[in-house]
Amino acid sequence: MSRGLRLIPIILLLFVLSGLAWRLIKPADTAVPSQMVERPVPQFMLAAALADKPGLAAADLATGQPHLLNIFASWCVPCASEGKVLQELRRHGVTVDGIAVRDTPDALSAFLARNGDPYARIGADRQSDVQIALGSSGVPETFVVDGRGVIRRQYIGPLSNSNVPGVLQELEQLR
């Protein structure tokens, strides 16, 4: 065996070890990002989730103005804390549209009464169809959609107060 050949196992070992070490330093991110970012919102039309608020269709997101599209549910625990942040954004003039996943009107209105209602429109996604079409993998998630109806960014997990300036700036740039 030549000397070079003998070193191959050691080189392979170093390669494997560095891969494993990398994973230890940077633990796996279990979030699965949507591949729909930088693509137009897929066609959809959702019935109103509440009697007193309009439903949501893809066309409602391409109005010339940027939107926040919030995927949420009344049964989702972190969504409750996100309500305040979305309301804060709304006070800054942001349009927040909601998609309520697997929800009932009663539970939804109780949830909004409890946590505040930042939404201009709420579509009822009773079988997660639109959620899946958007490439969203859980609740809550928030998509930034520009005026032409193109998804520009995805936030996985609840927005917090620290996100507010960033989101505002992003929307400002899209205006």
């Binding site: 065996m1 000397r3 003998r6 070193l7 196992p9 050691i10 070992l13 070890l17």
Partner: peptide, 16 residues
């Protein structure tokens, strides 16, 4: 890393 690395190095020198 220590055990397998040492064994591989030993093998590289003695195994041949």
């Amino acid at each position: 890393a220590i055990y397998v690395g040492a064994a591989f190095i030993l093998f590289a020198f003695r195994g041949a």
